[in-house]
């Protein structure tokens, strides 16, 4: 089983390079922005805003908060596709017959794929947390707890996304990975919209969309454990559904 995990990680070499590039870039940009917020142009803009000398509708510090949140989420978003990339790599090389001849059960092969997902997501989360800790030293906008909340929320969302992808691949026997991606995203978006529909309507009626974003960010920062619990449930369901179907139908794993 370990061999398959190693193989999957080898398949994700390109993604690793993208992750490093995105992480380093977003980290550098965020550090520069945070330094600017302390003693640069953003600090001057904030001072102007506070003294009423600016016609900006929203505080620059607030905008910076949004931007930093996005920058913290970006590296993890870049590894959100790891599961599908591993499936695609196997499909493109015709690895399925080789895998079928290996001394591994169907369950072991699926478990290997889930472990790859955890390893990828875990490594990404760990690196993002480490960088978040460094970032928290540069700013008062967000504490390390806020950063960590954001990172853990993003990791949970990736796991939910991947769990959905896994179910779609096995349950619906979907071969087109683009459809898998799109349908998973649509399902997640639909659940998100339905769960906060009341708030969305209120924000639109009050013409205060920024409040919605603020609430969203606060939710991600402080209620990450709700998403983590949802991810755990989704992964468990996904694992048992996937192994059950694959054992019965012997699909592509």
């Amino acid at each position: 089983m370990k061999g398959l995990i190693i193989k999957d990680l080898m398949c994700l070499r390109k993604m690793r390079a993208t992750f490093i590039f995105v992480t380093v870039s977003s980290f550098v940009i965020t550090v520069m922005a945070l330094i600017s917020a302390r003693c640069g142009n953003i600090a001057l803009a904030e001072q102007e805003y506070l003294t009423g000398g600016s016609d900006m509708p929203i505080s620059p510090a607030y905008i910076l908060w949004y931007a930093v949140a996005v920058m913290v989420l970006l590296p993890l978003a870049s590894i959100g596709d790891s599961l599908i990339l591993a499936f695609e790599a196997d499909k493109n090389s015709g690895f399925a017959p080789v895998a079928g001849a290996l001394p591994l059960s169907v369950k072991q092969r699926i478990t290997a794929r889930f472990i790859t997902l955890f390893l990828t997501c875990g490594t990404g989360t760990f690196i993002s947390l480490a960088l978040s800790f460094i970032l928290s030293l540069f700013t008062d906008i967000m504490t390390f707890g806020d950063f960590a909340g954001l990172v853990l929320s993003a990791a949970s969302l990736i796991l939910i996304f991947s769990a959905l992808e896994m179910i779609l691949i096995f349950l619906l026997k979907m071969k087109n990975t683009d459809y898998v991606r799109i349908i998973s995203l649509l399902i997640m978006s639909a659940v998100f919209i339905v769960s906060i529909l009341g708030r969305i309507i209120d924000a639109i009626r009050a013409v205060k969309p920024t409040e919605l974003i603020t609430d969203g960010l606060l939710f991600l920062e402080n209620r990450w454990f709700i998403l983590a619990a949802a991810a755990a449930v989704c992964l468990l369901v996904s694992y048992f559904v996937s192994t059950g179907i694959a054992e019965r139908k012997r699909g592509e794993i």
């Binding site: 370990k2 061999g3 193989k7």
Partner: peptide, 30 residues
């Protein structure tokens, strides 16, 4: 399957893999 060696008409290994990579993978499988 531990005692079976299988050869297909198409290779099936990922194209980016070298003999060394395949060795690393297989020594953790067989």
């Amino acid at each position: 399957r531990e005692d079976i060696g299988v050869v297909y008409d198409e290779m099936g290994f990922h194209e980016f893999m070298s003999g060394k990579d395949i060795n690393i993978m297989m020594k953790h499988i067989y």
